[in-house]
Design a binder for these strands. Structure first.
Length: 322
DNA sequence: GACTGTCAAGACCGT
DNA sequence: ACGGTCTTGACAGTC
């Protein structure tokens, strides 16, 4: 049985029921140190409010926004924000640890470790260093992960995978911070499948995040199995070191087409809110497997609350017994 | 106040 | 070689 006492439910980056009192970022052209300090200060206040909301509502898995410190990995930023805001970051870290909140971060598509272009790889390193610096300064352990996609294919997937493995095994450990121990890879929707990620795992030991939506989109799957691939990635996580496996979940937007009477998936589109019938099916298919789940759905915390409610009802006997 | 173009960054695809 | 698209929110400028 999936254990509702350990499974954590969360959502990424923003919460639509918590208002902001100031801009979260600004344009590069208007960069200044004072603007950066002001913005980060506000972002940290927002993050604290958001975490308090999450604790109050039992949403104990959260993805911290990559925009916490705007332009942190850009050459324009020489400001040692991690020293300036050290006390506040530590304080947030203490709160996270106190309430046992699971944390992840997800750098944008610009992190491409297997690019043939050295500059792009270097920029990717800088971006990873930035992400880890946040988690390190918060003094979070290795269960707080930074998830990325494998990258491009460049006409030869085998070579591209080879470059990824070489970079991971040789270069990443030379970088500062906890990058190598925090990095995890996620299957994407058209280039690297779970199978491809497993191939990389075999030669690196990198844990794999299972994205159910990308898995459904990948290739021409007519009948998509969830349980088998999920079962395979679970063993890529070392429970004591990495924590529970992470799963990204979102539901397909189903649309009708004019020239076809069947309902078709429009690949890559997310629904506005969680489809509880699909989610129920997902829970049924994954019964007995232990993981934390991140709901990547437009209305963020609202869907997470609906999902939590469903899980609680489904496992009422467990919760009341435990 | 509403609307719209634009934003640091990459890869891929069709033309 | 080049522009559009992916995806996406929110800033910033315009009316």
């Amino acid at each position: 049985m999936t254990n509702p006492a350990t499974m954590k439910i969360g959502y990424p980056c923003i919460n639509s029921s918590i208002s902001r009192n100031a801009p979260s970022t600004f344009k590069l052209a208007s960069y200044s140190e004072s603007k950066l300090v002001k913005t980060v200060k506000n972002n940290l206040i927002y993050l604290k409010n958001l975490l308090r909301y999450n604790v109050k509502n039992n949403l104990l898995f959260f993805r911290i926004s990559s925009d916490l410190v705007p332009f942190a990995s850009h050459p324009v930023c020489k400001f040692p924000w991690y020293i300036f805001f050290q006390a506040e970051l530590e304080q947030i870290g203490d709160y996270i640890k106190k309430h046992d909140i699971r944390i992840s971060m997800h750098p944008d598509q610009f992190v491409v470790l297997n690019s043939p272009n050295e500059m792009i790889v270097q920029n990717s390193f800088n971006e990873l260093i930035y992400h880890c610096k946040i988690l390190d300064t918060m003094r979070l352990d290795e269960t707080a992960k930074v998830q990325i996609h494998v990258g491009g294919v460049y006409g030869n997937k085998l070579e591209a995978i080879g470059r990824f493995i070489k970079t991971y095994n040789k270069s990443l450990k030379l970088l500062e911070g906890s990058i190598k121990s925090r990095l995890v890879i996620e299957n994407d929707d058209h280039l690297y499948s779970i199978k491809d990620c497993l191939c990389i795992h075999q030669q690196t030991g990198i844990p794999i995040v299972f994205d159910s939506f990308h898995h459904e989109c990948f290739g021409d799957n007519t009948e998509v199995l969830i349980r088998d691939p999920l079962n395979m990635i679970i063993f890529t996580w070392k429970k004591n070191k990495d924590g529970l496996p992470m799963v990204d979940y979102s539901s397909q937007d189903i649309v009708t087409t004019s020239n076809n009477s069947h309902l078709l998936f429009r690949k890559g589109k997310h629904t506005a809110t969680i489809d509880l019938i699909s989610f129920k099916k997902f829970l049924k298919q994954t019964e007995g497997l232990d993981f934390d789940i991140m709901l990547e759905i437009k209305d963020k915390e609202k869907s997470a609350l609906k999902a939590l409610d469903l899980v609680r009802k489904k496992y009422r006997h467990f919760v009341s017994a435990g």
